[in-house]
């Protein structure tokens, strides 16, 4: 016990039996009301989208037999009505979600690998490498993301592969910034400095001492980049830059909007894909927001 300890008075947090940091991230998310809401929402959407098409396969060729079945409201045969081509909205909805999810996930993987990698290298080596990398990052950070994505998609094509690439290659700067600043402080930790002075290889230090410490931050960021990617894909598809063959939720809304479903009052065609996007994005946002709060409790707790 040091008597010249100046650290304030009785800090109630210090008396809590379990340190905040020791709780695994996923458990902390599950314990949080909003975090659990996100997990439940997401689990519901994922179950629908991943299992749904197996139970209710979609056949793009099964058009309505007569004009009467075009843009038709929900019936026993078509639970969520039909599209302007007489296709079943419910089945298309289930398949469309897969495409939205697929593009969102693959774009996020690209963005996170790029962003975390650059952030790690930049923060770890600091110095001139950091300066150059951060200049580039800042440049891409200020470019308006969605307009850039639209331009790239217009120039390079609309397949889901290109869409994923385009979104992934434009969504990394924020991640790079966040990871870098964390790594910058980690590399000054006594343990890292000591291991370094003992001559450990940089790659090993990064893998063993730095990466595990930024991993939770990467996860929190992952959830937010995911929701951003899904939104970007939806916007692209809605603007007619989606894959014309692989129909996503955004494409469905594009078709609905351009086929007069709005003036027909065909809510069954508009609400499901829109609600699907919102639920998926909200699920990821709630989880990401919750992780953020767990990792950075300052903004939420105390007094």
């Amino acid at each position: 016990m040091t008597i010249d300890d100046t650290s304030g008075e009785l800090a109630p947090e210090a008396l809590a039996p379990v340190g905040r940091r020791r709780t695994p991230l996923w458990l902390a998310v599950w314990r949080d009301r909003m975090g659990r809401g996100g997990v439940v929402t997401l689990a519901g959407v994922l179950a629908l989208v991943l299992v749904g098409p197996v139970v209710f396969p979609f056949n793009a060729q099964s058009f309505g037999s007569s004009s009467a079945s075009i843009l038709q409201g929900p019936t026993g045969a078509h639970w969520l009505g039909t599209t302007e081509l007489g296709q079943d909205v419910f089945r298309q909805f289930l398949v469309g979600g897969r495409i939205s999810l697929y593009v969102g996930v693959s774009a996020t993987v690209i963005a996170i690998v790029l962003g975390a990698g650059l952030g790690l290298v930049s923060g770890y080596y600091a110095g001139w490498r950091d300066s150059i990398l951060m200049r580039i990052t800042d440049f891409f950070l200020v470019l308006p993301t969605l307009p850039l994505i639209i331009v790239l998609a217009a120039l390079f094509g609309q397949s889901i592969l290109i869409t994923s690439l385009v979104i992934g290659l434009t969504s990394w700067p924020q991640t790079a910034r966040i990871i870098r600043s964390q790594v910058l402080s980690l590399r000054e930790r006594p343990l890292v400095l000591r291991v370094r002075s003992l001559g450990a290889r940089d790659g090993r230090i990064m893998r063993v001492h730095i990466l595990p410490n930024v991993a939770p931050l990467i996860f929190a960021n992952l959830a937010l980049v995911l929701s951003g990617s899904i939104l970007a894909q939806a916007a692209l598809a809605f603007l007619g830059l989606g894959d014309p063959v692989q129909v996503s939720w955004g494409t469905m809304l594009h078709n609905a909007f351009n086929s007069g479903a709005m003036s027909e009052g065909a809510w069954w065609y508009i609400i499901p894909p829109g609600a699907g996007i919102v639920a998926m994005v909200l699920g990821f946002s709630l989880i990401g927001n919750c992780m953020d709060r767990v990792l950075n409790p300052l903004g939420q707790d105390a007094r």
Binding site: M1, I3, D5, T6, S7, G8, E9, L10
Partner: peptide, 9 residues
């Protein structure tokens, strides 16, 4: 008193 003894409270 030492820190944590309640004096600031």
């Amino acid at each position: 008193g030492e820190s944590g003894c309640g004096k600031t409270t």
